[in-house]
């Protein structure tokens, strides 16, 4: 996922939908969405139990150990 994981001080580990992934330090929510290929998709994100409003995607900075849930609408009854 990340091009440079050799310097651990520049890397953060996030738990995304229950799976751990590494990203570079100073990754915003918007950057993460971009990097994961979700740009332009209808998704919603929860960070450590709190909703991340779409309006803050560009400004919220992710931190080591953050737990993210990224969800979509699917068929259901």
């Amino acid at each position: 996922m990340n091009s440079n994981t050799s310097d651990l001080s520049k890397v953060i580990t996030l738990i995304i939908n229950g799976t751990s992934r590494q990203f570079s330090l100073n990754t915003t929510v918007a950057a993460l969405i971009d990097e994961m290929g979700f740009a332009g998709k209808r998704i919603a994100i929860e960070r450590n139990g709190d909703i991340v409003p779409r309006s803050t995607f560009a400004t919220q900075m992710l931190a080591e150990g953050d737990r993210l849930e990224i969800v979509v609408a699917v068929g259901g009854g």
Binding site: N17, M36, K41, I43, A44, I70, V72, V74, G75, G76
Partner: peptide
């Protein structure tokens, strides 16, 4: 219409 909310597949087909 009802819909469910589920974790998105990571690395899903765009």
């Amino acid at each position: 219409v009802t819909v469910a909310i589920r974790r998105t597949n990571l690395g899903q087909n765009a």
